[in-house]
């Protein structure tokens, strides 16, 4: 296997894992844009989508129906989370919001554990297991489904914000809540909608991911953390940025994994690849706090 062949495989791998970070980050961005909340339960939405679909397939529903129902249920969960845990909050400091959503993430995780147990579960692949070849590199066909969902999500979310009245209203909420309210936008409804939309994106991602990566009740935290970093690196609040940030993190991780230990003569083992990707991400943020695609926000006085 030549170095070029390896490089191609690393790039393919990097993109395919980065897209997952990105799509979770995209979901985070939707809520952040409407509310300024970092939803630490976002990863749990992904996990619920995947595990829910498996549970429904196991009771005998055909796959497409199971997928649809799972996404609908997670959307309901998203709405319920907003209604039951976010709206009643007496104060909305950043810290309070982070803590409330962490609480929600624990409840959802604990619920999944109680309901479906601790073992990993899996869905049948949507279109076989025959790997798709790119030169000598290979990619699981299911990964293409994941990428398709990511691309569709970005396009969908971008056009929603850009071309629909509701989308514009939602953005208005984020920019200036009081002003939005004055022009007659129902803030509560916008917030609810952002949770629902975000849950749809997350659940879809969870469903298409499960055949390649399996799903476990405890996996949500990892999704949230990586998605959060992707969103932040891309520029919090920028939906395209989240996906770009995610792909960048994925590439860093896979390239570091592939090359760090030959480059350092075995001094630094490839087990550090995630730490390296993360350190680079933090460095970027340190130098450019608004993220890669984010715009510098003016400080409100």
């Amino acid at each position: 296997m030549s170095l070029t062949d390896q490089l191609v495989q690393y790039l393919v791998t990097g993109v395919s894992i980065g897209v997952v970070y990105g799509v979770v980050g995209l979901g985070l961005t939707i809520i952040y844009n409407a509310t300024g909340i970092i939803n630490f339960a976002q990863g749990e939405f992904v996990m619920l989508g995947g595990m829910g679909a498996v549970a429904l397939v196991n009771v005998g529903l055909p796959l497409p129906v199971a997928v649809a129902v799972a996404v609908a249920v997670v959307t309901g969960v998203g709405l319920a989370v907003e209604r039951l845990a976010i709206r009643p909050l007496p104060a909305t400091s950043i810290m309070t919001l982070i803590i409330a959503t962490i609480g929600v993430s624990l409840v959802l995780k604990g619920g999944a554990k109680l309901l479906w147990g601790r073992e990993a579960v899996i869905l049948p692949p949507f279109s076989g297991t025959q790997p798709v070849r790119i030169g000598t590199a290979g990619i699981d066909p299911q990964r293409l489904w994941v990428m398709a969902v990511a691309v569709l999500s970005v396009i969908g979310v971008q056009s929603f914000f850009r071309y629909t009245l509701t989308g514009k209203a939602m953005q208005a909420c984020a920019i200036n809540r009081a002003a939005a309210q004055l022009v007659g936008i129902n803030i509560n409804r916008m917030v609810s909608l952002s949770f629902a939309l975000s849950a749809v994106v997350a659940a879809l991602a969870g469903v298409v991911l499960t055949p390649v990566t399996m799903m476990r009740y405890s996996q949500g935290t990892t999704f949230t953390l990586t998605g959060f970093l992707a969103a932040v690196v891309g520029g919090l609040g920028n939906s395209l940025g989240a996906v770009v940030g995610g792909i960048m993190l994925g590439l860093l991780e896979s390239l570091a994994g592939g090359f760090i230990d030959p480059l350092t003569g075995g001094m630094v083992s490839s087990g550090y690849n995630k730490a390296i990707a993360l350190a680079v991400a933090l460095l970027i943020l340190w130098l450019r706090p608004q993220g890669l695609l984010g715009r510098q926000k003016k400080e409100a006085l």
Binding site: Y10, T13, S16, T213, S270
Partner: peptide, 14 residues
């Protein structure tokens, strides 16, 4: 908790 090991496997393959 890792879900993709193709990077490691690529190095191994090489």
């Amino acid at each position: 908790d890792d879900t993709d090991m193709t990077t490691q496997l690529t190095k191994i393959k090489a």
